[in-house]
Amino acid sequence: MFIRKAALAAAAIAAFATLASAQGVYDLSPQQPGRPRTQPNPAAIAAIAGDARLVEPGVLTVATNASTPPLATYATDSATLVGADPDVAQLIADSLGLRLKLIPTPWADWPLGVASRKYDAAISNIGVTEQRKEKFDFSSYRAGLHGFFVKADSKVGKIAEPKDAAGLRIVLGGGTNQERILLEWSKQNVAAGLKPIELITFDDEANRLLALSSGRADVIVQPHAQLLFIQQRDRNIRRVGVLSAGWPERSDVAVATRKGAGLAQAITLALEGAYRDGTFDAALRRWGVEEERLEKPETNPRGLPKY
């Protein structure tokens, strides 16, 4: 069963942020006193290619999507960008001896913006794919994960493989990678003589959560970090599993720069330095996404294959 509806409420995102801040779960103040900072990294600075050109001299201009808390959202002033991705961007800028300029950017707009030199980089929960590597360089820093979450009182205990989801009604975003994966899971279940998975799709998160809370769906699937934020905010859902965003492959999340811009290796070295001095781990911990830490950053790691 496929149900598609569209809408996205920016006001709702702001309300979510205010509520989470009031509960003391996340620091969504514009001041960000706990944001980790690091020192200039000489090796990273030296790795910037001689012909690299920044949008503004002395400034690292970074695009990020402000609609995905806790990865990136607006602070309680509705203007300042905060979250795990802005924190990572700050550490990279510090390491390269640059001032950070964050630009709120719809997710679909980052490729053109980076390719046209409107932004030096995009840090916006971007997965590495072989197709994207044809136009962009990548510096990986997080694992791409989806989460399986259920109502707090659900009888569903664990979802780790296709058979665990047989016969369940799962709500998710239409046209997403999660949908592609779960369609394949459902095919495998049917081939094994199990019940198919019933997929219910909505474009907006509010309707997905309503479907779960009202009992129309048994499980919600979307990016893991977003569901962790909702769990802390609403206190009425719980995690029953995680899934690689590139199942059956590993999926790396990375900083994207224009192909051949001369910045990727410098950014990777900047991330390596932040790994060593602990500031990278501190950035992930303060937003609850430390489980998504990669073992080490890499320049242009293997990406998901073309489908």
Rank of each mutant, 00 (worst) to 15 (best):
I126Q: 09
G157F: 08
P42R: 11
N300V: 00
L96T: 08
I237M: 15
D87R: 15
K133V: 11
A7P: 05
D203T: 04
A261Q: 00
L168D: 09
A122C: 13
A274Q: 00
A165R: 04
L145P: 06
Q31T: 01
R285T: 09
I267H: 06
T76P: 06
G83R: 03
G113I: 01
A47M: 08
G241S: 13
S67H: 12
T18N: 06
R4A: 12
Q32H: 07
V253W: 08
T64V: 09
W107T: 04
I159W: 04
L269H: 02
A245N: 10
L100E: 15
E184I: 03
N41H: 10
G260Q: 03
V62M: 03
F149M: 14
P40H: 11
G262P: 00
A115V: 14
A52V: 15
S186N: 01
G157S: 15
A254D: 00
A160F: 01
S116P: 03
T18R: 09
G167I: 03
E249D: 11
F148W: 10
R233S: 09
Q188M: 08
A160G: 12
A108Q: 02
L112S: 14
P106T: 05
V289C: 02
S244M: 10
L28I: 13
G83E: 06
L8W: 10
A9W: 11
N236Y: 10
I123T: 05
F136G: 03
P248L: 13
R132F: 03
T201Q: 12
R286N: 15
R142T: 09
F148G: 07
R53T: 13
V255F: 09
Q231F: 11
P248Y: 08
K133G: 10
S154G: 12
R285V: 12
N189Y: 13
G144K: 10
W107M: 15
A7S: 07
G34Y: 06
A274L: 03
G215N: 04
A93T: 00
D252A: 13
P69R: 02
E295A: 12
P223T: 15
A10I: 05
A10Y: 02
K155S: 14
A274K: 01
A206S: 13
R285C: 07
K195V: 12
F280K: 01
D153A: 13
P104L: 06
N207H: 09
K306F: 12
K187G: 01
S251N: 14
T299K: 04
V255L: 06
K101L: 12
Q23E: 14
I170V: 14
Y141C: 03
K133W: 02
P30H: 15
K195I: 07
Q265R: 08
L304T: 10
N189S: 14
P57L: 13
A264V: 02
V156G: 00
L112I: 14
T129I: 08
I126G: 13
A108C: 01
Q265G: 08
A22V: 15
R258P: 00
D109Y: 12
A254G: 11
Q226S: 12
P69Q: 05
P301S: 08
